[in-house]
Design a binder for these strands. Structure first.
Lengths: 213, 213, 213, 213
DNA sequence: AATGAATGAGCATTCATTCAT
DNA sequence: TATGAATGAATGCTCATTCAT
């Protein structure tokens, strides 16, 4: 790299557009690195230096983008959850049948996490490492996600698709809990298999029950 | 052992029985304290000194009964899980109908954890704080527990009670995941409500599905 | 063991003569164990429990015979040094020629330590692990030992056997230092060889010098 | 390096040279502090915090320059011994007469340690506090030092200066042991006297023996 | 005298965070 | 913005010593 290229670079950094780009990119890079590192070693066993090293930046630089190690974990969750919910809402908006909506949500759930194993590990394992986090977690995006399922189910009850002797909240928890268990088992499994197809197996039971009619 | 032999023993300075009793009691006290402390602050945020303080003993005494802080967490799990599985097996042994067996297991699951909130927190939250632990966890008692459900379901399929177009493994995961979610929500809930009755609500869905027939 | 045998034993312990014997024996056993353990692991890395275990007694029993771990080390030195000096004095008392006296001391020095490797290790290595100890050490028996050599040399000067242009103190240090170095090398050597014969090799130089006459 | 180059350097934020200088200086400062602290309290009784405090840095900073407390002790020895040997070799290279060479070595030995009492204490006392260290010590620089003496003596035998009925190895140990004893006594002595002159007194005996001819 | 369970002070090391450059 | 050297609080574990039995 010549002196000239360096000069050009430093000019770029100063221009409005690319500054934001750089900022976003570096934040992004740190988050990606953190997900990888957290997935490998666990939150408490991961050092900020590991994350910085993985992202190819200095330790101190992390603190230009995040206030603390804890905030990184929160950001991972916030960002993924927001994206998760947005995409979920977008997809089911175009679907009429409540049962199909739930099917879409279930598939999306497993597709998302089945594609990004590291993120899945952080979600299933690391995010649950502290009661404190779980309580905030619960209060925030997670509740919203569960509520989408609940509402969709209630719609189905109103339109006569679903049984009305079941509480929508319970129903949402059962579906979410089932999917969650699929993810956890997939992560911990020594065998490698695609996660997404499990959605249909879960729904077969969820929709029809296990009893012979 | 006769009454006479007991009398003789109590005259002895250190009878096998009473020594063991003290040892068991103190081990027990440490485990109970650890469950409480872990539940309150999380495993990584709990100091060994906290556990010792809660148990009313000196820090060093903890190490007369446990090799490390980590071993305490393992012991909590091992003991509870063993008891859990033993009781589960005992109860379903007396039941014929596979559906009733599953109902018994489900109720037992929620009764147990619903009675001991601290233990529930450690089980739901702390035991999942590390991938490493989860993998050992998975390989050990947890797999056995899931297998009991799977076998019971398979029995039901053989006896014509349950649908045969569903994989027993998936079925076990769905039931377990649903119950697990009930526990997690119960723990994190600000409201106080009995956990055990949720078993029936879960089973209503599990057995009959959510669709209108 | 029957009750009777126990009774007999407790009577033995109460008899004057054997009590002292037991006390001495146990003190002795602890010292021997300590020498072995210190030689193997070093003073700071040895636990009192190791010594007790080696001696086949309970940890607390050590404190019935010694005030502290430190005192054990001191006792090892004191006892060995006293014995050392006493034997040295006794042996040279019967010898007339000062040169022969020094030869006897030198041989005795290496014979003693060459026979008890563990004691040698403690003497050469462990006793020097602290300045504090070395200073007390120096002030006590060690100075006396060095003084015996010095006096013997001075006798030799008076009787015209040794050069008078050499300070007895320096002479004593040279002889002691030379012997000491033989012991240290012998301990650290991977090869196994008898230590005592080195005395004559040292004396050949000490008496005659290294220069060609 | 000229004054101008220095000026240029100080203008640079972080020139390679000055960074290294700082690093070396701090390492140096830690080693000096450690020598002082070890000399005062002994290795095992010295806390890393003591060393850091003496050096005027934070505890953690020590670990930026040394891997462990143990490594500090090793570094002290390695550095001093390397310097010791290098200087010894350099000095005797210019001398022809083997006897003069030994005289030079002996004087150097006592001059070095007589100038730096703390270093002398660490060398004489602390480095011998563990068999483990002594064995590595023996295998490394110490053996090399002894070997220089041995070779020099063998040269003297070849050139007819020294007696040939003496083993060079024994001879080296006697000389080294004698000097070593001078240092140890000097350290432990309550009186204050110059160490270096003792070299000649040792050599008077070493070269000529103690016997009247 | 003997025991060994209990004590609790003590310490090397780690690592999130800061800040001068 | 970026760096990375420096910080120093924090903690699991050890082990010499005590003491009730």
């Amino acid at each position: 790299m010549t002196i000239h290229s360096v000069e050009r670079m430093s000019k770029n950094k100063s221009s409005g557009q690319s500054v934001r780009a750089v900022v976003v990119d570096k934040r992004e890079a740190i988050l990606r690195s953190a997900i990888k590192v957290f997935a490998e070693k666990g939150y408490f066993n991961s050092k900020v230096a590991d994350i910085a090293g993985e992202a190819g930046i200095a330790d101190g630089t992390v603190y230009l983008y995040f206030k603390s190690k804890d905030e990184i974990l929160h950001s991972i969750f916030d960002r993924a959850m927001a994206e998760f919910i947005a995409e979920g809402r977008r997809e089911i908006a175009e679907i009429q049948n409540p049962a199909d909506k739930l099917r879409r949500i279930a598939r999306l759930h497993l597709e998302k996490l089945g594609t990004d194993r590291d993120l899945a590990i952080v979600f299933q394992i690391e995010l649950r490492g502290s009661t404190k986090f779980m309580q905030e977690f619960s209060a925030a995006g997670f509740a919203e996600y569960l509520d989408i399922i609940r509402q969709t189910f209630a719609e189905g009850q109103a339109s006569g698709v679903f049984r009305t002797d079941i509480k929508p909240v319970v129903c949402a928890k059962v579906l979410y809990g089932s999917l969650d268990e699929m993810v956890t088992n997939w992560i911990l499994s020594k065998k490698s298999y695609p996660l997404a197809p499990m959605a249909d197996e879960v729904l077969k039971i969820f929709f029809g029950g296990v009893m012979v009619k």
